[in-house]
Design a binder for these strands. Structure first.
Lengths: 231, 231
DNA sequence: CCTGTATTGACATCATTTCCACATTTATAT
DNA sequence: ATATAAATGTGGAAATGATGTCAATACAGG
């Protein structure tokens, strides 16, 4: 799967790198909002982009965070006048290629290798999205946070001497938004994990010192990394 | 989109109807379980199939219910030794075609029209799955049930003189499982809706008499029907 | 170095949801 | 027709999670 993802990404880069400039965006830039028509497909070269929705009452849910070499394709492909169903904004500073939707679709339609790679990529994303949602729905807020921590390890984890460093700054509020919980609840759960020596938290970066503790607490099925991520 | 779905289904029927027999399954038959290798792609000709997971503690979540002329493709396509991540079982008596996974993938690889149709179908399912999960996560149990009711109307709704009949028998327990809630809570919420004259319930079939009441209570965005369903 | 702002930590209160216990009704099978 | 199982209805205690408030830190910019 990893190969297919890379292959899709590199097929796209090959095709479009000379046609479009790499653009830079500051953290917090809104790329699109729900109900907006889809103009571009974004190829993320570096940085992280969050996708999510805001409830009428103001509370925010971060559906996922995409990072690294990644494709941002969150609409009904091949449909007339497609639009977005949730927002997309840069989570950190980003570099990306913006490809016109029509050009992207034309490329996929006329390139069987790209189409197959895209199909594989979509079927994986489809499963991953559903597994992540089920974890959030079926495990309560504590289990939801634990499942987010596991996914963060898979997507952002860097092995360090005392565990796995989640190498992206995350505030308690952002962690809360990833589970649609509250900052206070996250704060308490992290405090408990800190006191148990399971995690440590410095400069807004978490280090998971005992991933097994977290995995056992949520009955983690050790899904392959391409299925278990925050992306 | 509807056209593309139909086109994918009919492309598949065209290709496989003479090669495989239509098989019948009784309600409650388990088609696959999580962690089982994927042998077949199922083409549902008639009936309904539910997909979901069971928590270690025994509580069940119904992720979705597929019905009618439908494709059941819930694995990482083009991957070696793919397996399922959740169960699939017949919800009602069903008729379906079982296509060997390899034959299905070969067909998609060599048929550009089928591949494009599948890509479009997957991108729609991907969005639909995420919208449904977000509704369940962001609206509490009451909002979750309401969103399930709206989706049931879209997928199973039959206009009748006093509203929209959801033409499939559903127990309170099954409704609860669709939101990962409890039977008691569903019972109380339905009672309230019944007393308000918003729904009626006979022979395990719901009639929604005032869909607008439900829509307004969950700030329904009136998404197109291909995005808002229980499937 | 000071000041305004964002983040973290802590706690009390309130609302939602689950869990448990049991009664009643409805369907199914003999 | 009767026994049995399945589904529905109800009440109350317990757990979980949200909300609001306030103090203590950390940090960035002038």
């Amino acid at each position: 799967m990893k190969e297919l993802k890379i292959s899709l990404y590199s097929l796209l880069i090959q095709e479009f790198i000379d046609k479009e400039p790499i653009q830079k965006f500051k953290a917090g830039t809104i790329l699109f909002n729900e109900k907006e028509t889809v103009k571009y497909v974004y190829i993320l070269v570096d940085g992280a982009v969050s996708l999510g929705r805001v409830h009428v009452k103001g509370k925010e849910f971060i559906l996922k965070i995409l990072n690294g070499e990644e494709l941002i394709l969150e609409y009904q492909i091949f449909k007339d006048q497609p639009f977005y169903y949730y927002y997309g904004k840069t989570f950190t500073d980003c570099e990306m290629l913006l490809i016109k939707r029509e050009d992207f679709e034309e490329f996929v339609r006329t390139n069987p290798a790209a189409n197959s790679a895209l199909t594989a990529w979509l079927s994986t994303r489809y499963l991953k999205a559903q597994m992540k949602c089920m974890d959030l729905i079926m495990n309560g807020k504590k289990g939801g946070l634990y499942s987010i921590l596991i996914r963060l390890c898979n997507t952002y984890g860097v092995p360090v001497e005392d565990g796995i460093l989640i190498d992206v700054p995350l505030t308690h509020q952002e962690l809360a938004n990833l589970t649609y919980g509250t900052r206070e609840v996250v704060q308490r759960m992290l405090k408990e994990l800190r006191e148990l020596g399971v995690v440590s938290y410095e400069q807004q970066k978490l280090t998971i010192r005992d991933l097994n503790y977290i995995r056992e607490a949520v009955d983690c099925q050790r899904c392959p990394i391409e299925i278990c991520g925050i992306n």
